[in-house]
Amino acid sequence: MIDKSIATPEAAVTDIFDGATVLIGGFGEAGSPIELIHALIDQGASGLTVVNNNTGSGEVGLAALIKAGRVAKMICSYPRTANSTVFPELYSSGRIELELVPQGTLAERIRAGGAGVPAFYTATSVGTPLEEGKERRTFDGRHYVLEHGLTGDFALIKCQAADTHGNLVYNKTARNFSPVMAMAAETTIAQASQVLAPGQLDPESVVTPGIFVDRVVAVTHPAYESELVAQGMSYP
């Protein structure tokens, strides 16, 4: 019998190793798996490469992971957000590496990685500083650059509901990068507001099929980054 449910966020992240590449879902706070990230901070893995669109805000969630010095490198499109001070300080003092990737290219690199496509061409970044070092090719008279698929050792994502087979549905725009990250990681860990028995999710409505998900953990009342920041919380 397939049962991918894990009792606690702590138990779900025990094997994340030093130096791992971790794909973390979310666009700003929407879809950010805060409880899994806090469990990762408590677990202690360091030297991580983290893939996320942003770099978190305040001193909770992703920003707290960065502040704790666990992240060696960020791969993201937009490391500046309101209330985002942790990353800029570390970056300015040369204590964290940044790979800046246009947002659509980032999403497609992850999708490609998850789909077994090693690289693809896109017109995004042609003629800009972000083209530097990339192979250029012309198709039908238009210039394109070669971009490589991106995979992770782990993905940490948040969803609205999961079943014990790992099928997932999301909540509105909190979906964002999570479906492609689930595909692109060796081990995908999803926190869900509800973990249901098989058959309780309509198969027609499943967004991420369970084949892409390894562990599901119930976080019944997930925190929101902006609320924690407004409370002045600093994790741990």
Binding site: A30, N53, A82, E108, N176, F177
Partner: peptide, 30 residues
């Protein structure tokens, strides 16, 4: 792209709206 726009401000949906993941969002664009 819970329910926010590109500037991460909260927005509302109108009847006929649809949600999609980020790779689809940029497939629409690209």
């Amino acid at each position: 792209p819970e329910l926010i726009n590109a500037g991460k401000r909260q927005v509302t949906t109108v009847p006929g709206a649809a949600f999609f993941h980020h790779a689809d969002s940029f497939a629409m664009i690209r």
